[in-house]
């Protein structure tokens, strides 16, 4: 679920009012972990360290090109 302006405003209002109290901050954290980490399909599991570029996304052609001497640090 993407961030929207109303959600962002609501979150910030919570942060600067109830969020001043530690128990409310802890509750918010628990709710966010439940909603965005634990309660997700395994295939869609949120991870900030995912979805970076992978060379395999270019298909097969890049391997041959990458293996050429000038591109592997070997002497030519």
């Amino acid at each position: 679920m993407l961030m929207s302006t109303p959600k962002l405003v609501a979150l910030r209002l919570y942060n600067i009012t109830l969020g001043r109290f530690e128990v409310c901050t802890r509750l918010l954290r628990k709710a966010l972990v439940w909603r965005y980490v634990k309660n997700m399909e395994p295939g869609a599991r949120y991870s900030p360290t995912s979805k970076f570029f992978d060379m395999s996304e270019l298909g097969a052609g890049w391997r041959a090109r990458a293996a050429r001497p000038g591109n592997t640090g070997e002497s030519r």
């Binding site: 996304e57 270019l58 298909g59 052609g61 890049w62 090109r65 990458a66 050429r68 000038g70 591109n71």
Partner: peptide
């Protein structure tokens, strides 16, 4: 610079 050898993205369909 080496005409396709050193740019792995050159001409890639994706």
């Amino acid at each position: 610079p080496k005409s396709g050898e050193d740019n792995l993205f050159y001409g890639q369909d994706a």
